[in-house]
Amino acid sequence: MSTTRTDHMKYLPHMDILSSDMLDDVLLYRNAFHNEDYTDRDVRSALQKDDLSPHDFMALLSTAALPFLEKMAQKAKTVTREHFGNSVALFTPVYFANYCENHCFYCGFNSHNNIKRARLTEEELHTECRSIASTGLEEVLMLTGESRRMSDVEYIGKAVKIARSYFRVIGLEIYPVNVAEYKYLHDCGADYVTVFQETYNSDTYEKLHLAGSKRIFPYRFYAQERAILGGMRGVGFAALLGLDDYQRDAVATGIHAALLQRKYPHAEIALSCPRLRPIINNDKINPKDVDERRLVQIICAYRLFLPFASITVSSRENARFRNNIIKIAATKISAGVCVGIGAHLDAEGTEKGDEQFEISDNRSFSEVYAAVKDAGMQPVTSDYIFV
């Protein structure tokens, strides 16, 4: 029996539709990238410039650029120091619900995965935030599974208000919402929004997202713009490297961020560089073709194309890699990470709900803080003062 699925390119009735051609523009650049078109001459030309064109950016993401990786890293380091000094921002994620209505093959939270589900009560949120704040952290990224039924916008708003009483900076990584809902969450105290597009290949996206609101490709694409229109001062972008052609997805991520920065120059732009990680009940999910060398290439290309963008490298990567990449181009890393629900509720770190994926760097906040200082960098827990 055939199953009729929702058209992944058509909005559902409750979804805001923005009048914009940006999706078409980004996909045009993505599809125009052909790895074999770029030569060492293109790479050398790009490395001589301070203001990179999309063509230059693509050249730095091509295989032709791999022999120039050391030169890319040296220039990325120089550009990073010019715009960010030696500072490295530290934050930690707060997973406060893992209910999900989507069916996504690669995610531990997906609705078809048999895991322990939970969401934190207001009292538990206070306990979780109080425990994290006691370590010295001042910025958190609030995360839920994608379930409007179990984690509605009002519940997320209450969680943000609670977090705001403990932390200076609040980020959100939740299911995409409408402009008015982003405004409500901003009014509750949220500062920025991060959304992983996962892959910019709409055909692959359709195959990986079988059910749920996340299946709607364009609605997810325009989430950052809706967040800015809702008053958020910053937005983050990422493709989950390894789901599809990583070079084309990196091209699309950088172009997406650049076009939005041009349209909304007041907004803070951030990039994340996540690779696939194993999940509960599936330890075979790993990044295909994206080894650490290629990950460094992507990060350096992002830095040279978008000099002012913050670049985050999460605990998906190991301590050795993160200790080194902050010396080159990354400006933000997570610390004291627990990706289960309510892992800070008791001294034993017992999780109330299962984790989204396996992490590689389990160091505490104090250990990461010390490592940043040992690298000759300046750890920063918050660069915002509210008066």
Rank of each mutant, 00 (worst) to 15 (best):
D191S: 04
E82F: 07
G236I: 11
D187K: 07
L304H: 15
N31R: 14
L243Q: 08
A73S: 13
E268H: 13
D7F: 12
A343L: 06
H14G: 13
L60E: 07
D249E: 03
D7S: 12
L66T: 03
S315K: 05
S20A: 11
G342L: 01
N318M: 07
H55D: 09
G145Q: 00
I170R: 08
P265Y: 00
H112S: 14
R320P: 11
R119S: 05
T204L: 06
A239M: 02
Q356D: 01
T127Y: 05
Y155L: 12
H55F: 03
K10N: 14
I279L: 04
D42F: 12
L229Y: 02
N362T: 06
Q48Y: 06
T63D: 15
A211L: 07
F221V: 10
S314P: 03
F217L: 13
E198Y: 05
M150I: 03
Y175R: 06
I326C: 15
V177P: 01
F105H: 12
S213C: 15
D16T: 06
I255S: 10
V140P: 10
E198C: 08
R81T: 11
G108E: 00
I162Q: 04
E351G: 13
D152A: 00
N110F: 11
S272V: 09
T331Q: 06
L208M: 06
V372H: 03
N178K: 06
T135P: 04
F109G: 04
C338V: 15
Y99H: 02
E36N: 07
K207A: 10
L240F: 04
H344W: 03
N324T: 09
R233N: 06
V94C: 10
T144I: 00
Y369A: 07
P93C: 00
G376T: 08
Y205R: 09
H34P: 11
S360K: 08
V160I: 07
K183T: 11
S2L: 15
P13K: 01
D244K: 10
L120V: 08
S53P: 01
A329N: 11
A301D: 09
H34E: 12
D383R: 10
E124A: 06
Q247S: 15
L18G: 04
D40I: 14
R248N: 15
Y219D: 14
P13A: 00
A32Q: 13
T144R: 01
R41N: 12
Y106Q: 05
A343T: 12
A133Y: 06
E101C: 13
P13G: 02
T135I: 05
D203E: 12
N318T: 05
D191M: 00
G254K: 02
A211I: 13
R164S: 02
E317N: 02
Y166L: 10
